[in-house]
Amino acid sequence: MREIKGLNDAISVSIVDPIISDQGWMFSEAPGAIPDWVNHTQYLQEIYQFAANYRLSKSLELSTRPISAS
């Protein structure tokens, strides 16, 4: 689909190693896997942790923002 829409340069794809490790799914250079070249993470759980931390920081930012009278 990315190729059909001409989005190969705009949207990357990473594929975890087909064998899960003790620390979860790992991005590797094993056959069939594609490393995470965008975020440079080693494990899929790092992506989830980053997303959770981002959501939390945005929630805190919104909850501490002063209410405008306008």
Rank of each mutant, 00 (worst) to 15 (best):
K5H: 15
I20H: 06
V16F: 01
D17L: 03
K58E: 14
A51G: 01
W37E: 08
S14A: 14
A10S: 14
A33K: 00
V16I: 13
G6K: 06
I19M: 13
H40T: 02
A30P: 02
P35W: 03
V38Q: 09
Q49S: 10
S21D: 15
Y48D: 10
I47F: 00
A30D: 14
N39A: 11
A33P: 05
D17M: 05
R55G: 08
Q42G: 13
V13H: 05
D22P: 04
I11Q: 08
A30W: 03
N39W: 09
K5F: 15
K5M: 15
G24R: 07
H40F: 11
G32Q: 11
Y48H: 07
I20Q: 13
D17G: 06
A52P: 02
G32I: 01
I19D: 14
H40V: 04
Q49L: 08
G32S: 15
Y54S: 12
P18I: 10
D22T: 15
D36S: 09
D9I: 02
I34S: 11
D22A: 13
G24E: 08
S57K: 14
I19R: 10
L7K: 01
E3G: 11
I11T: 10
G24T: 06
E46L: 01
S21K: 05
V16P: 10
Y54E: 12
Q49I: 03
A10R: 12
N8T: 11
W37K: 00
W25N: 08
D9V: 04
E3S: 12
D22R: 15
M26F: 01
Y54M: 11
Q49K: 08
V38Y: 00
H40N: 11
P18Y: 13
N39K: 09
R55V: 10
F27K: 07
Q42D: 08
Y48K: 08
M26G: 02
F27R: 07
D36G: 04
Q42I: 07
P31V: 04
I34G: 07
T41F: 05
S12M: 07
R55C: 09
Y48C: 03
Q23E: 15
K58C: 14
L44C: 07
I4C: 12
A51R: 04
D36V: 04
Y54C: 10
Y48L: 03
P18Q: 09
D17N: 14
G6E: 12
E3D: 14
F27L: 01
I47H: 07
P18D: 13
I15D: 03
K58P: 00
A30V: 01
S57G: 04
Q49P: 04
Q45I: 08
D36M: 03
A52K: 04
D17R: 03
K5G: 12
A33Q: 01
A33Y: 01
D22G: 00
E29M: 05
A51P: 03
A10V: 15
D22W: 05
Y48A: 05
V13A: 04
Q49R: 10
A10P: 03
P18R: 12
M26P: 01
G6A: 09
V13M: 06
A52N: 11
L44N: 10
